[in-house]
Design a protein around this nucleic acid. Structure first.
Lengths: 249, 249
DNA sequence: TACATCCGATTGTCCGACAGACCAATTATC
DNA sequence: GATAATTGGTCTGTCGGACAATCGGATGTA
């Protein structure tokens, strides 16, 4: 008799609840849009207390797998970029990532987005770009506003690339990298102008469906960001911190 | 008197609790490793019930911002890939992403990882690669096992690239894309061999610190995956689903 | 000193309760 | 008869209190 037992994985009741609900969602028993039973009913079915159910639900809610409209019943939902990106960005900040790390990642993701956007964009998505560029021109003096619009520009490109994976992958990076422009811009007056010029060229290539050009200009744009950063004597190893837009949420 | 009030953003008490704790973490009042007060103390300080505190804590726990060792006190922690990647992968599946979308993203992320790995790897990280390759050779018959090791190989490369952003960005993609090999392999007998050969070449380039070669071979490896997929008459638009490794968690 | 035991602190879970919001049906008013 | 006001039921958010299990540390004993 020399029995070997592997360590048991003890889960708390509330963890079981959330795991079970997740399982039902991914197995297809619960589809997006479906309404969940009320908390009391869930408590009854699972045989646990309502408080326990509530703690379990918090996890799913946090993952964007369920949400509630107003104060109504819970319903299953598809997590979107708004659910995921801020959390990932926060995690990156906690990991003390540097400008260089963000930049290196953006250098491969953003040109890919631009290239695909030129291929896959729909005509009705061009208006959003034009609006963005127009707002950029009027915000050249306001660094903070400019940064917001810049971040949006890159998100728009990713969305028009019609690749959910790429879009969701780059969003957390963009949320941290582009706000760093707010640090750069005051130190390097010409930065804003160069940004606008680059955006216009990229948009031009995308509207002409010239994917090679779009990719090249985007890469130049990202490279230029780094060059500006170094010209302003900012360290590539600078830890990036949370922009207010995410910190408050 | 024609007052205009903007819609108030009403937050539930438990949301305020988690937001406040997050704020304290990111403001530096609470550093990684710090212990949080007990639930009762928190409830006292915030002036809310312990149940409310617990619901708030669930959210932070879920984000990997706090964790508890055993049944002890909560402490602040740095979210790692294990906290984030499965959630993101699940979100991608809920978004019904296709093989093509994953592949397009991997095509830019993985070569970048390989290139940086060749530049930044430490000598003591080579052993992990060698162990991985060795296990691959012995698992050629077992598709499932082989897929696991394959996934690990790419994670190892990302880790040795020493870029946290890149590493965290690619992990959710890898967790979904490489398990698709389990579908491909039975349909295309030569696939396993080609995979091993590619891994060996990539490892070779990395161990020689030849970043250009590492990048090229990785790109070929990813391209080859797609070619195999198409040769097996699998559709690029196939929806990818959750591998068991994530589904159970 | 080494070991066994006990006690307090803390978490996980449960119970019961209530106010406020929402929804639907009913009633009152014109 | 149509619309407005009232009512009632349902569900969530929050609360207070309670208890068992567990862990850490203090205490006692050999």
């Amino acid at each position: 008799m020399n029995l070997q037992f592997e360590k048991l994985n003890i889960l708390s009741a509330y963890q079981v609840v959330s795991r079970e609900l997740r399982r039902m969602i991914f197995s297809g028993e619960l589809k997006a849009g479906d309404q969940l039973p009320t908390e009391s009913e869930l408590a009854g079915q699972f045989g646990v207390n309502r408080s326990t159910v509530r703690e379990g639900i918090r996890q799913l809610e946090n993952d964007g797998l369920v949400r509630r409209e107003g104060r109504k019943r819970l319903c299953v939902s598809v997590p979107d970029s708004g659910d995921l990106a801020p959390r990932t960005s926060r995690a990156l900040v906690m990991n003390q990532v540097t400008f260089r790390e963000l930049w290196e990642t953006a250098l491969v993701l953003e040109p890919a987005c631009a290239s695909l956007s030129a291929k896959n964009r729909r005509d009705d998505q061009l208006a959003a770009f034009e609006s963005n560029l127009e707002r950029t021109r009027y915000a050249l003096e306001d660094v903070h506003r400019c940064t917001e619009i810049d971040t949006e520009f890159h998100t728009l490109i990713a969305e028009s690339a019609h690749n959910t994976v790429l879009s969701l992958s780059r969003e957390p990076v963009g949320l941290l990298l582009y706000p760093a422009f707010e640090i750069l811009s005051p130190l390097l007056p010409q930065a804003v102008g160069r940004m606008l010029a680059a955006h216009e060229r990229i948009f031009g290539a995308i509207s002409l469906r010239n994917s090679a050009e779009a990719e090249i200009w985007m890469r130049k744009h990202i490279v230029d960001f780094r060059r500006g950063w170094e010209m302003a004597r900012l360290s590539l190893e600078l830890r990036v911190d949370l922009p207010r837009t995410i910190a408050d949420t």
